[in-house]
Design a protein around this nucleic acid. Structure first.
Ligand SMILES: Nc1ccn([C@H]2C[C@H](O)[C@@H](COP(=O)(O)OP(=O)(O)OP(=O)(O)O)O2)c(=O)n1
Ligand SMILES: [Mg+2]
Ligand SMILES: [Mg+2]
Length: 1111
DNA sequence: ATCCTCCCCTAC
DNA sequence: TAAGGTAGGGGAGGAT
């Protein structure tokens, strides 16, 4: 087992600052979102008027869906329990402790199953909730746990009360099942200890047993109270053979099998992609996923509140009236000694009318504070939130864990851990201020944290709790103002200028009030900072913490900020700090001594200026009040272990579906998809230091553009799989996968391309080039080549980033390992430098082999050879042509070959696009081989294509379906569409009647079943691809087939035409299309069929309106 | 100049 | 064991 690389790069105590890693990624929300019905809300129903629900925990339908249902039918949805306001709690499963809690609350409300909502909806009236009460007869509808005992392999299974067996239970218990375990355990625990356990703890406590075999040491712990309790609770234990345990035994990876041998009974953690429910399980447990999605949630939430705002701010109004009352009762000279009245003493304020006042507010050690709400005994102690308990090094689990807290001081950990052995590699999400005194920091490995603070207690996550507290936080602030910029789930900026002006309070007074309010509502401490701008406010918060407040007044700005370390400045992280250190700058005061010019030279124009300004407390940025999302992504870099490409593709599909679900949820579509894979670095061990982590990796990205914004999972999945194919990575080496969608367009009218203004604005004034292209059918072939790029970087555990060259993974995978160490770089297509072992050639696919052989014989020097010899500053290696080949050049990275690493292949390297993706025959057929002018073999292929070009084009356009179109570069696609219109027009003139929707504008007839109308996906690639196109253009310029003249096409309904398509068209063509529709509309109008064009979505209505304007 | 793409860096 | 995600700002360097 290799050790983590030391963080030699970053002196200081660097490690904790990196948290041990570079940022990594994950993705995925509950698959439950897929069950969301596409409920339409056109008719304002008042079915649920007067009902205000709070959804607790996992439900089906999901909380999200319930929220939609309530809002659509006149009900109210509360994000957290609001005594006296919430009328019903909705839950499918609730831990006993929570039920008790709710029942003993001052204003108990019924706890109903979500079916009450859905059934009421079905019935069209609000049904009596009595039959839907949760736990009136507890086990009635709950699954029952079947604990299979005996033998060495014990598995939990569940059987629901109707007797059907959960097929997946062996691998991963359903949410409800887990909940049931919690419930029972909680109940019994309450009975035994007279003290309820939190659901998180119980679940976590039992997780290893639930998800794994039950020979887990955890299970044999003498004090495994909860588990024994469960056993006592009619949970049947039965023995299950391994083979029957794993529905897909073939999915056991080598790694897992090894583990199976080491750890005696077979491991069946739902912790890698080898397991069925992995994605959900992972996301359910990923703190980073949770804080990310919660961050997005609250940004949206603020937008939503602002949209719906009636301009009334209850909190502010209440405050104002309180102040008025106080003013009348308290003497105006403000000598009241009582703090409560002092707060409202406004008499001294207002004299110094400062400018804007920004408040920054941030919960103190958020996760810990939330977790400690019901563990008062731990307040004041060093506490950390982490998944593990820090017992990794404990040989004998002698320690009795009383469910709740893990007191590590009593744990018997192995004595001296090596310097770079951190013990538990579970990460500390948040730690209390007591722990911070010992040097513990957020993001640190638990093992290291324990070294610094042996008394550290760990507590479990409570994601539901975080969300509730966050909502309370946001609602509270939002009751004073909506000039809020959400930063994260525990943090925001608010412009308090008007609040302070209206109330007459000074910042500290207001801080006291709002902090108290938040603390009362949430039970968690919160700190606030005030200043003249965001920067000052945030730095003030730093001083305020913990549980405090601070107003950084102008006269203090300079001295206060000067005393700070540069690292304290927001935006200054490890890298910047390190660079500054090299400039002998440590404090902000020292930073001020560096000239603006120097800073800009070192860090770039804007960053330099930022540093310059920040060191002086200057920050001109405004609060970002209207947040607009620019990308949607999902990635997982944990637990990724593929045994074969089926595994990999399977996961890619799931992840694709996930990003699509996120797009839909965010009401956006994207025009670009990027696949990122993390690949085990050659020198990295197969088994990562961190359990199921990604370890030291290289990573590759590859992207594709669509012509029209897309959120269809079929399209996205297909493209992602195509990208995956092209990346040509060994599935076994993959350690992380990410899919990002960018170039978003909002489906809400905002500023997408569906807006007529954008439509018009986007029309390029100079379309001469467009015309030229529109007429040049040769481009069809020329452009029909995917030009993608692959980039690679190295990612190391210690966060140090080493850039490396691109790799032809194909070769890297094929070539003998020994050769890999040498720089048998395939400098493509300058293959004269290639050091490919000839012995591998026979193993290559014929076409590739031929290509290589041809290339090798070609000794012409390419321009890029010069570039290769120059150590350029570019760390990026663009390998467009190679990608098209489906291969990447692999330049073996070595630290010694820094210059080689910086090779930048010029983009006139060409490559054929050998893409065997079986679902796209037409595409493959039409893909010419691309080549440099010097590459004869490829040249010939190209010429061959060219020979039949005209025919091909016609075939292409005739047989075109969406799948094919999807693959085409944007330009080509436009041309095809345009050509079809033209053709159609010609045909029409000959007598063909225009009629109904058809394939013409690409809304495929063949795949419309799976994809939404108007979604057209087109692959394209710019940047490096452009050069290729250019060279090809010159190549084909001599051939100029007439525009298609035998294309049959019908006019699709207006609503199926996406504006984005039209926008891209040359004006000439666009006008023709518009004319067509004018004609059509006249026809339809005269026929009275116009009404048939019933548009259902807002989107389409918008489009229709646009058309009304156009026509 | 200004755009675009592919990154790196940062924050929570 | 362990759950290393996600979004945005901006720089480099090439295309226009
Ligand atoms: N590396 C990190 C940093 C933060 N978080 C989570 C847990 C934190 O509680 C929450 C909020 O982050 P903060 O930066 O606000 O940190 P805390 O709230 O924990 O402490 P502070 O009092 O410094 O705000 O985000 C995390 O999981 N991993
Ligand atoms: Mg915080
Ligand atoms: Mg925070």
């Amino acid at each position: 087992m290799s050790k983590r690389k030391k963080n030699t790069n970053w002196g200081e105590n660097g490690f904790e600052d990196w948290g041990g890693y570079m940022a990594a990624k994950k993705a995925k929300l509950e698959e439950q979102f897929q069950i969301i019905a596409s409920t339409e809300f056109h008719n304002a129903s008042t079915l649920f008027q007067g009902i205000a629900i709070f959804v607790n925990g996992y439900t089906k339908p999901s909380a999200d869906e319930l929220k939609r249902l309530m809002m659509a039918h006149g009900g109210i949805y509360h994000h957290y329990m609001r005594p006296r306001i919430t009328t019903h709690i909705i839950a499918s499963n609730l831990p006993y402790s929570k039920i008790v809690m709710y029942r003993k609350s001052q204003h108990p409300v019924p706890i109903c199953k979500p079916e009450w909502i859905s059934d009421s909806l079905k019935a069209g009236r609000v049904l009596d909730y009595q039959p839907y009460l949760l736990y009136t007869n507890c086990t009635e509808t709950q699954p029952r746990l079947m604990f299979k005992a005996g033998g060495t392999n014990e598995k939990l299974t569940i059987s629901s009360n109707n007797g059907t067996k959960d097929q997946n239970c062996l691998k991963s218990l359903s949410e409800t099942a887990k909940q049931s375990i919690k419930d029972i355990a909680t109940t019994l625990s309450v009975i035994k200890n007279n003290k309820p356990l939190s659901s998180e703890e119980i679940l976590s406590e039992n997780d290893p047993c639930m998800l794994d075999n039950c020979n887990n040491e955890e299970f044999t712990k003498p004090n495994s109270v909860t588990f024994k309790s469960i056993n006592a609770a009619r949970i049947v234990s039965t023995s299950v053979a391994n083979s029957s345990v794993a529905p897909e035994p073939t999915k056991e990876s080598a790694v897992n099998q090894r583990q199976v041998q080491n750890v005696q009974p077979k491991s069946n953690h739902n912790i890698s992609t080898q397991n069925v429910g992995f994605l959900t399980e992972f996301y359910n447990n990923s703190r980073l996923h949770h804080i990310s999605t919660m961050g997005a949630t609250f940004k949206d939430y603020i937008n939503e509140l602002r949209d719906k705002s009636d301009g009334i701010f209850p909190g502010l109004d209440r405050l104002k009236s309180t102040i008025r009352k106080t003013q009348t009762t308290v003497s105006p000279n403000g000598n009241g000694s009582d703090s409560d009245t002092e707060i409202f003493d406004v008499s001294d304020n207002g004299k110094k009318s400062v400018g804007n006042i920004v408040m920054h507010i941030d919960m103190d050690c958020f996760f810990v504070s939330v977790g400690l709400r019901n563990k008062p005994e731990l307040v004041g102690q060093p506490v950390a939130v982490a998944h593990a308990k820090g017992n990794r090094k404990t040989r004998v689990p002698t320690k009795a864990v009383e469910g709740e807290v893990n007191d590590n001081s009593e744990a018997e950990r192995e004595g001296n851990m090596e310097d770079d052995d951190f013990g538990s590699m579970s990460e500390v999400a948040s730690c209390s201020y007591e722990a911070r005194k010992a040097g513990v920091k957020n993001g640190m490995f638990l093992g290291q944290a324990l070294k610094l603070c042996p008394n550290l207690k760990t507590i479990k996550y409570d994601f539901e709790g975080y969300k509730e507290v966050s909502y309370a936080l946001y609602d509270t602030v939002a009751s004073y103002t909506l000039k809020i910029e959400a930063v994260s789930c525990d943090e925001m900026y608010a412009d308090c200028t008007s609040i302070l002006a209206e109330t007459g309070l000074n910042p500290m007074q207001f801080a006291k009030i709002i902090r108290k309010e938040i603390r009362d509502k949430t039970g968690c401490p919160v700190s606030t900072g005030f200043g003249g701008n965001k920067l000052q406010a945030r730095l003030a918060t730093k001083k305020a913490k913990p549980d405090g407040q601070f107003y950084l007044e102008q006269e203090m700005v300079r001295s206060y900020i000067g005393s700070l370390n540069v690292r304290d400045l927001p935006g200054v992280g490890m890298s910047t700090t390190h660079k500054l250190k090299g400039m002998l700058v440590q404090s902000c005061a020292e930073l001020r001594n560096i000239s603006l010019a120097s800073l800009q030279k070192e860090f770039g124009k804007k960053t330099g200026e930022m540093l310059h300004n920040m060191s002086r407390g200057v920050d001109n940025s405004k609060l970002n009040l209207e947040h607009v999302r620019k990308s949607v992504s999902a990635e997982v870099n944990y637990g990724i272990r593929f045994k074969n490409s089926i595994d990999a593709e399977d996961f890619l599909k799931k992840l694709s579906v996930e990003v699509c679900a996120r797009m839909k949820k965010a009401n956006v579509r994207g025009r670009s998809v990027t696949l990122k894979v993390m690949v085990r670095a050659k020198e990295a061990p197969i088994e990562t230091p961190k359990f199921m982590g990604h370890g030291l990796c290289d990573y590759y990205t590859k992207s594709k553009n669509f012509i029209v914004a897309v959120d269809d999972e079929v399209i996205v999945t297909r493209e992602v799989l195509a990208l995956w194919t092209q990346l040509q990575q060994k599935p076994e080496e993959i350690r992380g996968i990410g899919i990002q969608i960018s170039r978003l367009e909002s489906l809400r009218s905002k500023a997408g391309t569906t807006n007529i203004l954008n439509f018009i604005n986007k029309i390029k004034p100079c379309d001469s080039e467009n015309k030229q292209r529109g007429c040049d059918e040769n481009q069809l072939l020329l452009h029909n080549i995917e030009v993608n790029s692959i980039s690679k970087k190295s990612d190391s555990d210690n966060g140090k980033t080493e850039n490396s060259k691109n790799l032809t993974t194909f070769f890297s995978n094929s070539v003998k390992k020994d050769n890999l160490d040498r720089q048998r770089t395939l400098e493509y297509p300058g293959l004269n430098n290639c050091k490919i072992d000839d012995s591998i050639l026979p193993a290559l696919p014929e076409d590739i082999r031929n290509e290589i052989l041809h290339a090798k014989h070609n000794t012409v020097n390419f321009e890029h050879n010069k570039e290769i010899q120059q150590p350029g500053p570019s760390k990026m290696v663009t390998t467009s042509k190679l990608n098209m080949l489906g291969k990447t050049i692999q330049n073996e990275e070595s630290l010694a070959s820094k210059t080689k690493k910086d090779v930048c292949l010029s983009s006139d390297n060409n490559v054929s696009n050998i893409n065997n993706f079986e679902e796209r025959p037409a595409y493959n057929l039409q893909n010419p081989f691309m080549t440099s002018d010097h590459n004869n073999s490829l040249f010939n292929v190209l010429m061959e294509s060219e020979t039949n070009q005209e025919t091909n084009i016609l075939q292409l356009t005739q047989d075109l379906d969406e799948a094919v179109l999807a693959e085409l570069p944007e330009d080509i696609r436009n041309e095809i569409l345009a050509a079809k219109i033209i053709k159609k027009k010609k045909n029409d003139k000959k007598g063909d009647k225009i009629s109904r929707p058809s394939e013409a504008l690409a809304v495929d007839e063949t795949s419309s079943k799976s994809s939404e109308p108007g979604q057209i996906c087109i692959s394209e690639k710019k940047s490096s691809g452009k050069k290729i196109q250019t060279s090809q253009e010159s190549y084909f310029r001599h051939t100029k087939p007439s525009t298609s003249n035998s294309i049959k096409a019908k006019l699709p309904p207006i609503e199926q035409i996406n504006m984005a398509v039209l926008v891209e068209l040359p004006e000439e063509i666009r006008n023709e299309i518009l004319n067509e529709y004018r004609m059509k509309q006249q026809e339809e109008t005269s026929l009275g069929t116009k009404a048939e064009v019933a548009l259902q979505t807002e989107h389409n209505i918008a489009i229709q309106n646009i058309w009304q304007l156009c026509l």
